[in-house]
Design a protein around this nucleic acid. Structure first.
Lengths: 127, 127, 127, 127
DNA sequence: GTGGTCTAGACCACA
DNA sequence: GTGGTCTAGACCACC
């Protein structure tokens, strides 16, 4: 799942989700400064306007805060991050399940298979 | 999950899995002819040798059968297709879970979230 | 039978069988390191890719194990080596018999001739 | 067994045996004219002197007869051809067995394996 | 250094 | 036309 995402989705949404993941993975921590729009554009190979739109969207949701003249920063509001975490979790699950169903797997197979898998690997619970 | 796959994986493996999914989705049915090596190469934008290797690999696994001068065909052996189905299922589950864990979700969150999601959508079981 | 082998067969298969014989003869023992792909290529006068393919094929069969950055080694799994021994035995016998038949010898001639020959030489049984 | 032969053996003997096989296989029939020394040399990629020696040797054994100004012909003397047939049979068997023994196969393995193989294929006996 | 992958382009065998 | 093999030479990942 290095970067599972419907490539047909709007680029600014792809970018949005990628950044959300970076936050969840800890690559970006609360209070961290995001790359400038220009940097991000170059690094991601997309148009600066697209990056701009992504940042605006994230600002609207509350994930990041923009400080004029300083840059864009990951919010430190726990509630918002928690909410984002929940939202993304459901999005990932939805994507996973729908993909599996498209390949013909039944609900039971998915749930059973996942249970078996989880019982066989050490979880992040105990880490 | 239009095409979730570690993009850093070898191309011939990405292609292999893509074809497996097409079989599972029914886009390719048992007995169907796959595109010729050259066609697939052009369509996929990779070298014919790379496609060749994918086909060879699938032949070795038993997923396809090649007939010299005629083409490459999806096997009609149910047992092999079933085995492939199981293997791919576990691969997808593994990829999903590991991705989720990398984002900090616990086993319990994954399992619970998935159960909730499944209880809210009609499954392919009843379709 | 220093190196009896259909010279029209693919080089990578000729090489594969040559190595198998070296293992059976004890020139290569379980755990031994094979020449590097490049060495073997130079020594055999073939392209490194061809050697690579031979090694890959052997890896798939389980005859050798490759350790990235270290080299390719003869497996130490007795079961696999035994299996290989059986397979090669049958291949040699098949090749011998078919060759004899092509020259017009009958089954009976072959079997009788072989029995007589064996009764006249001391076998590896008693060695 | 397209051309199993100890490549370290003298070339003129390799050639001799190759021709013998052609006779046994029926590629050369009694009374047939062999290629001229010069032709054979070019076709085989060996020195004409080597071919000459092979022909002389075959003449001595009686396999071929040379007619001044006409060429070299396969003998029509059945007894000699029969003798050659026996001799070559034993040579092939010897080569096969010794090769197998070098690879560690026992007399019993060889004989049993060969019996099993013969019982599973239709022989030239019934053809 | 090791093996692994990919490309470009050639040639062969089968039908 | 199909797949199968081989080469030359590149680049990568691991150690």
């Amino acid at each position: 799942m290095t970067d599972s995402f419907d490539p047909s989705a709007p680029i600014y949404l792809q970018l949005l989700e990628r950044i959300q993941r970076q936050i969840l993975r800890g690559d970006l921590k609360p209070g961290d400064k995001l790359p400038s729009v220009r940097e991000m554009a170059i690094h991601s190979g997309v148009n600066p306007n697209t990056v701009q739109r992504t940042y605006r969207e994230m600002e609207a949701i509350g994930i990041v805060e923009t400080r004029r003249g300083q840059g864009t920063f990951v919010t430190e509001k726990e509630a918002i991050l928690q909410s984002m975490r929940e939202t993304l979790k459901n999005k990932e699950i939805s994507r996973f399940v729908e993909g599996m169903k498209a390949m013909g797997y039944t609900h039971e197979e998915i749930l059973t298979g996942l249970s078996i898998y989880l019982s066989g690997v050490k979880g992040s619970d105990q880490e």
